[in-house]
């Protein structure tokens, strides 16, 4: 029984392996193309999610686990998306880069009206 099952499992793992390699090359291709940064990020997020989905479902056997465990394992992903969007807003208005660029020019912006 076990003997009959093992080759089937191996074949599936080989298929997942091949797909992971294909998607790695795809990600590499996306990394080298000169498309807009936002689109590149979106494509890389999609490829990464597909890859972790495959690893999780087949290598980590989440496909055969109960749904509550599956949901639990994906909680860090949800939390990190929330954290990302909380902090992303800050980066739009963070003056750090302005200070760094201005600092080299001169001190002219310092105390404009006195």
């Amino acid at each position: 029984m076990a003997e009959a099952h093992a080759p089937h499992g191996y074949k599936q793992y080989m298929m997942v392996w091949v797909w992971l390699l294909v998607m790695t090359l795809l990600a590499l291709g996306v990394g080298y193309t000169s498309i807009p940064h936002g689109l590149k990020a979106l494509l890389l997020v999609c490829i990464t999610l597909a890859k972790i989905g495959l690893i999780g479902a087949f290598f980590m056997h989440l496909k055969f686990e109960r749904m509550n465990l599956v949901m639990l394992t994906f909680s860090p992903l949800v939390l990190s998306i929330i954290l990302f969007f909380f902090t992303y807003g800050e980066t739009r208005y963070d003056p750090t880069h302005l200070i760094m660029i201005r600092g080299a020019n001169s001190v002219q912006t310092e105390a404009p009206k006195h």
């Binding site: 093992a6 499992g9 793992y13 992971l20 087949f58 290598f59």
Partner: peptide, 16 residues
């Protein structure tokens, strides 16, 4: 990635 695939096979073999 390859070592991960081989690890999955190790788990399969251990289970069998």
């Amino acid at each position: 990635i390859s070592s991960s695939a081989v690890m999955a096979m190790a788990v399969g073999a251990a289970r069998a």
